[in-house]
């Protein structure tokens, strides 16, 4: 069972790998920021007093969470094309990833909102704060602090899921791997290298989020406890 692995032939393509990794990170960061904002809005919408808004948000969340990302990407890709919008693969990928992570973010934020004890909302009402002020200071910010670990895990998963965008020719890391392996005829080595790169990217993202958490949440930084 002789395996002959030729890593140097693959590793000399490191500029392409780096470019692919950079694009993967770009995709992930854009989609994370947009998806986090969008998902938070949807989570707020789920508690809306007007039933149609609340129901629309719930339908969106359940539809995304119960269908594969690959199908969603194709639907966005072909859907945009059918209404005449010619966007770059990069833009389509960001749109599809945002729509996807928005639903998961909404669920995580909703759990965070529901964990806020009713007594604190009453105390805030007793202090004459407006609905918006209560939402912002007493519900939203503490909820983000509380669900921050779950949120950051979700965003790292998003970065890994971006590999699926190779199927619509976005030039992220997996697409680069497909190209290089077809060029070098060294498929296994190529994918090993790429797997290692993804693991490094995950570690980088986790470290980045950890640092961000220290900056955003002074209470956590000072006391070291979870909300």
């Amino acid at each position: 069972m002789g395996i002959q692995l030729d890593f140097p032939a693959v590793l000399e393509r490191w500029p392409s790998f780096l470019a692919g990794a950079a694009l993967t990170l770009e995709l992930a960061l854009f989609a994370t920021v947009l998806g986090a904002l969008f998902g938070t809005l949807v989570a707020v919408g789920r508690g809306a007093h007007r039933a149609p808004i609340a129901r629309a948000c719930k339908v969106y969340v359940e539809a995304i969470r119960n269908t594969p990302l690959l199908v969603q990407i194709f639907l966005v890709y072909f859907g945009l094309a059918s209404i005449g919008l010619k966007l770059s693969a990069f833009s389509v990928a960001i749109a599809a990833l945002t729509i996807n992570v928005g639903a998961y973010t909404a669920e995580i934020m909703r759990a965070g909102f529901e964990a806020i004890p009713r007594g604190q909302i009453e105390a805030a009402e007793g202090l004459a704060l407006s609905r918006f002020q209560i939402y912002w200071h007493i519900i939203l910010l503490p909820a983000v602090e509380r669900v921050y670990p779950a949120l950051t895990s979700q965003f790292v998963l998003l970065m890994l899921a971006s590999s699926v965008c190779s199927q619509i020719s976005a030039e992220e890391l997996t697409a680069v791997a497909n190209y290089i392996q077809s060029d070098t005829y060294r498929a296994f080595e190529t994918y090993i290298v790429v797997a290692v790169l993804y693991i490094i990217l995950s570690l980088m993202m986790r470290a980045g989020f950890w640092g961000l958490g220290l900056v955003l949440f002074p209470r956590r930084r000072r006391l070291g406890t979870l909300l």
Partner: peptide, 10 residues
């Protein structure tokens, strides 16, 4: 209130 309801994150 009986349970003080201070805002824990502030």
């Amino acid at each position: 209130f009986q349970s003080y309801n201070l805002f824990p994150h502030l």
